[in-house]
Every structure is written in C-alpha cells, then in structure tokens.
Amino acid sequence: MSTVTRVSDLSRREIRSSLREGSLLLHLGPFAQLISGSSDPLIDFLQDTYRDCQVELFPSDVTDVHLNLRAPNILRKFFRPQVVPDPGFEVPAVPLPIEMAPLAFEMGLNLSVALKCCRFVTIHAGVVADKDGAILMSAESGSGKSTLTAALLERGYRLFSDEFALVGLGDAVLQPYPRPISLKEETIPIVRELAGDEWISPIVKGSPKGDIAYRRARRSDIDQSHKQAKAKLILFPEFEPGMRPYKRRLNTAEAILRLIPASTNFGLLGEQAYLAITRLFDDAVAYELSYGSTEQSLSLIDEALQERDDHAA
C-alpha cells in the first residue's frame, strides 16, 4: 500500500531501495515527480534539503515528471562515477561527478518543469507571497533574485519558488512550487547570514556553475504548497554592488513585454499564455528596481507596496 510520508520519516534504506526501483514519488505543489537513480550524495541531499517534503515509496498514481539520474555510460557507473539527469527527452546536460548528484537532480527537475509542464505558463522568476498576494521577481541569473527571494522569506513571506512562476492558464493565479532556493558563490554567505546556518545545505564545490548551495524550504512553505495566490507586485530587480537604489513604475504593456521573454513556454502556449500574463495585472503593479544591497532592495519593495496601497485607497 502506498502512503504519503515526509522524507524525514523514512530510513535511508527505504529511500535507497525506492530510488533503485525508480518508484520514489515526490509531491510538491502541483507536480508529482517520479525519481529514480540511487546514489549516496542524492540520498544525503534529499534527507537534508527535502526533509520536510511529502513522498511515497510506491507511487499511487501516474506522474507529471519522471526523472532518472543515471550514469552517462556503463563505465561511469563504476569508475569515477558520473551522473546525468534524464527526464525522458533529450536535454543538453553535461555528465557531472556523482558528488554533484544534487545539482543534476535540481537541473533535471527544472528542465522537466520548463519543457514538459505546459498546463501553466512558466516564467523564470522568484515568487513569494503573504496573505495580500504574491510578489513575482523576474530577472536574469546573477541579478540578485535568489538573495532577494531568501530575504523576503525572513520578512514573513512564504516561498512559492525561486525558479518558476507557475501562472494558471485560465485564472492567472500563481501556484506554489517550493523547491529549495539555489545559491551561487558569493550569495551563499549572504543568505547564510540572513537565514541561519541550519537552513543552508552543504556546498557542492567546483560545479560548472561554481560553488552551489541550497536554502531549504520551510515546513510551512511545503505544507501550504497547495495554497495559490494572485500577484500583487511584479518586479524586475537588478543588483549591482555600489548602485544607488532606484525604482521605476512600469506600465502594463512594458511589463508584459518583459515577462514574455522570461517565459519558457510562451511560444508553445500562444494566445492562452498571453491572456494569462495579461491577467496577472488585474491586481498587480510592476516596477523596475536597481540596488546595491539587500536592505536597499527591501525598502524599495516596501515603498512600492505602499504606493500600490495608496493608489488603491
């Protein structure tokens, strides 16, 4: 019989045998993900960073995603083992040493969601929410999006996602998908400072993207991952050391034109995606932000929220 439990309630042996069978089902937000491919680094990672997530050792239903973390060839299964994420379609992924299995796992899930799950408009963005609504932050890698997302968690927001805004096709409502926040290089100590040491995973050193660590989602984020929210603020943040804090209100048209290229499936969904993105602005206003420190970005967001409320009143 299959039952849903938290990763932390399972023994290492149970996880290992389920990963070997390819029957470990990870539930998170709107997606069910079937994972196969056992390795010690992956089990360590799941037990640490995904400890509060809901899983089944035997799947009770079919899944959105099936991700196989396998050796690139038979030699690399035994000799200096390597791992590649295999989401069932061809992806441009380089084999990584087995110690980097967590990275392969995260990349594999991201690819699967970006390219396979088209019942939502997926936009490359960080999303957090409180009871008034969600803040969506769309930015290129390296613009401080992850740090900002992590900082907002400390302000009482719940984590939706650090990677994808999932926008519902009819209603433009945002879906939580609270995977761990991926931190690169110099952002690791910043977020460690913000969140506290116990929330940061061990560092994966020397990956193709430099040093990587993850800020774990909190149990409350995971337990509320079925609770959707409407967007209230849409931000295009840009971090540069020493930059003077600056914010500019964007009109809806400009904001839409900036969200479209950040979507991984806009072209595929066409009109439906366009309508959903447009509807985001039923309740939300958009700003471009530039800043040189996390505190500055937070006060800019406070100002933006205040302006929005003043406008509504």
Partner: peptide
Amino acid sequence: KPVDLPLP
C-alpha cells in the same frame, strides 16, 4: 540542438 533554458 541548443535550447535556451533557465538553469539554476
């Protein structure tokens, strides 16, 4: 074929 992807 190169694919444009948002990667972590």
